[in-house]
Every structure is written in structure tokens, then in C-alpha cells.
Design a binder for these strands. Structure first.
Length: 216
DNA sequence: CACCAGGCAAGTA
DNA sequence: TACTTGCATGGT
């Protein structure tokens, strides 16, 4: 079954050829991935890594331990990730939802249907569309495309999206133009982040070194 | 020094 | 509904 030959796929091919696989969230537990998804909200991954290392070192990177920690203890451990008070609350809210809706078993959330899991995630205060979809794609392996600020910036600069497109519209554009495949969506999102950090920052004008230059 | 980072919710008018 | 602001550490 050949893939439809869209510019979205061609751009993916160019990025993959240039950067290779990004291996986002490889071989981590579902819990570690989910915690990372919350901690990385508007935050550099390096800071998140420090926070996760703190949790591991303290031996609290398990559902039970995190659930039992006080707000202040949790906030202190995740401090390097920034917004530590809000993120401590958000993690607690997420754990509580899993306790109530999935019997405290994260695997049940990951095994749940994507629509049901997504609506339960979005009902949690502190979990928005990007965080929910990250968990669904990178944690549960559902073929759901994750949209972020970089995705919007790169593809609107390429005139493949209107500037005013919202999250759902951007996501729909990608999913309408790609074969639904979790492994593809996984790499594509990571590759967009990679290329944007290098060539599509807020004030960097376009340059020929960018692997996407030829698609302009 | 300014600016940014793998967002989200609450407040304001 | 459509902006704006708070949240906060750490790197460039």
C-alpha cells in the first residue's frame, strides 16, 4: 500500500534524511513518559531531565510514591523544571484522575480507546491538547499527531497553514495528509522540534542550510 | 542584559 | 468571545 505523495510526507522524508531518528521517549516507562509530558510544558527538556533525575534519585518515580508525596515534597523535587507549584498540582490532578477512572492503573489508561482516554485526559486541570496527545502518542502508541508551537510556526511559514489555525485544524491538516502511523507521527513531531530549534526560531529568517528550504 | 523553552488556566473587558 | 497575565528555572 503506497503512501499518498503529499508535501507533508516529502518534508518528513527530508527531515528524516537530514537528522535521522530522534528517539523521543525511548525505552522509558509509561509513568516516566507521562510525568515528562507535564513537566516539559513550555520548558526546555534539559530542565525536565534534571527534575526526573531528582524523582528517580529520591526513589519516588512510581505511581504509589508520587501519589503519596505531599505537594511541597513533589514541588521541591521537580523544581528545576520550572513552574514547580503549578506542575506539582497538575501531576497530582493527573494521578487522581487515573486513580478514579482507571483504578490507579496507568496501563489501563494507555490501553483505553484513544477517544475515551483523550477526553479523560482533557478533563484534568492542567492537561491541554498537546499534553494529552503526547501521552496518547508517545505513551499509548496511538496514531495521533502532536501539534506544538513549532509545528504551527514551521508550516505556516511554508504557507501550508493559515496563521490563525487552531490546534485542531493544524492536527487535522497533518492527519489528512499522512498515513495514520504512530511511528511516523512520533518521529515527525520530534523532527519538527529539531529543525525549528535550529532554523525556525522567532527571529531567524529562512536560510538555505535548512533541510526544508527547498520546500519554500 | 534580553529572550526563549516540547503549555495551560485564570483573569479581564 | 478574544486578549492578557501568571507561573519559574536554566541556558544562550
Amino acid at each position: 500500500m503506497p503512501m499518498p505523495n503529499t508535501i507533508f510526507e516529502e518534508m518528513y522524508g527530508a527531515l528524516y534524511a537530514h537528522y535521522g531518528p530522534q528517539n523521543w521517549w525511548p525505552g522509558e516507562t509509561g509513568l516516566e513518559m507521562m510525568v515528562g509530558a507535564v513537566l516539559t510544558q513550555n520548558t526546555n527538556w534539559k530542565n525536565v531531565d534534571k527534575a526526573i533525575a531528582n524523582l528517580k534519585r529520591a526513589g519516588v518515580l512510581s505511581f504509589e510514591a508520587l501519589y503519596s508525596l505531599s505537594h511541597d515534597e513533589l514541588a521541591e523535587l521537580i523544581r528545576p523544571a520550572g513552574y514547580y507549584n503549578v506542575k506539582a498540582k497538575r501531576l497530582k490532578n493527573l494521578l487522581r484522575m487515573i486513580m478514579e477512572e482507571y483504578d490507579g492503573d496507568l496501563q489501563q489508561l494507555l490501553d483505553d480507546g484513544p477517544d475515551s482516554a483523550r477526553s479523560n485526559l482533557l478533563a484534568v486541570n492542567g492537561i491541554g491538547e498537546e499534553t494529552a496527545d503526547s501521552i496518547l502518542l508517545y505513551g499509548a502508541g496511538h496514531a495521533i499527531f502532536v501539534v506544538d508551537a513549532y509545528t504551527h510556526r514551521v508550516f505556516s511559514r511554508h504557507n501550508l497553514l493559515e496563521e490563525e489555525c487552531g490546534y485542531g485544524e493544524v492536527q487535522e491538516r497533518f492527519m489528512d495528509n499522512l498515513v495514520a502511523d504512530a511511528a511516523l507521527f512520533n518521529e515527525y513531531h520530534a523532527l519538527i522540534v529539531k529543525v525549528a530549534k535550529e532554523y525556525c526560531k522567532k527571529n531567524t529568517s529562512l536560510c538555505e542550510q535548512c533541510p526544508l528550504f527547498k520546500f519554500l
